[in-house]
Nucleic acid binder design. Structure first.
Lengths: 159, 159
DNA sequence: CCGGCAGGGTTTGATTTCCAAACCACCCTG
DNA sequence: CAGGGTGGTTTGGAAATCAAACCCTGCCGG
């Protein structure tokens, strides 16, 4: 895993969103992670199922391994080769990937091309705050910037 | 809002993830949406706070308006100009944006540059299935592909 | 009614990234 | 040792991106 990113080095607002997008904001990163989540661990499978060109995919997979999102391990069914597997950080992306699929289903596509199932029923999610146990609504969420020189509205021009 | 995307037209697996990324998978889309969520509705504010070049930002904002994620409305404080506001589809991205910030905080940055607050306490989220009310774990989630010719492992080579 | 300035972008020309296709090296099988 | 599967790298050209400069409009002060 490469060294962590200091969010103050980002162009624009120091925000973990920009840092996260530096790692998974690439065009092929999330499709590749989706395939690994689905159990497709081999390079050619990921290439075929995402449609990514192999050079881009090779570069992105290498970067994802270096960032600690994926790791290479020998394949259980063929020890000659190794495949790509999720790390803890990668598994932690599962919820985001599912939410993006759900958003696409709701707002983008003509008809959902897959049914996402939770055990034996359809998965429809909402988000709950662990601290208070209540469902999260956007209007209850606020941001307190911790980096001096920035607040909600932008860089603070200090005297 | 442009016409919906048919997921069967995607390169690779027909999946709403790829369709969603076509709209918000651009480098500046989510940072721009974050700024609008934070209450910064003006072009220059969004440009400064994201660090995006203005030509890219102009193109992306236009695309986001066409996709129905943002809309242009007159600014309440200066009716001469109009600003960018979230539509329902845009507000529905709030949870994803927050999750990405959380993921970046946990796995990418040296130290979180902002505190995300839910009312008066720190926001720590998990996901709950609305159908059964239980917390969602990755291993309980499955995908049933509905497009003929595809399953979990890839395109089905039919006899 | 002219200069200056703020807002909201376009245009420009160099740079970077991306892509598709070809290629390479390795191993196994027949 | 030919052929095929695997995991990539290389190559040349097309497309997207960038920073910086520029453009247009509508005030606002003098």
């Amino acid at each position: 895993m490469t060294t962590p990113i200091d969010p103050r080095d980002m162009a624009g607002r120091p925000c973990s969103l920009a840092a996260a997008l530096q790692i998974i904001g690439d065009r092929w990163a999330l499709p590749a992670i989706r395939e690994v989540m689905l159990g497709n661990h081999r390079f050619r499978q990921i290439a075929r199922n995402t449609g990514a060109p192999t050079d881009r995919l090779a570069a992105r997979l290498k970067a994802l391994v270096e960032s600690g999102v994926l790791e290479r391990r020998p394949l259980p069914d063929d020890a000659r080769y190794s495949g790509y597997y999720l790390t803890a950080a990668g598994r932690d992306l599962g919820a985001i990937t599912r939410e993006l699929i759900g958003w696409g289903d709701r707002w983008v596509v003509t008809a959902p091309p897959a049914r996402i199932r939770h055990r034996d029923h359809e998965l429809v999610t909402h988000t709950v705050c662990e601290t208070c146990g209540e469902r999260v609504h956007g209007e209850d969420v606020h941001r307190d910037d911790l980096v001096p020189g920035w607040d909600q509205s932008g860089p603070v021009t200090n005297p």
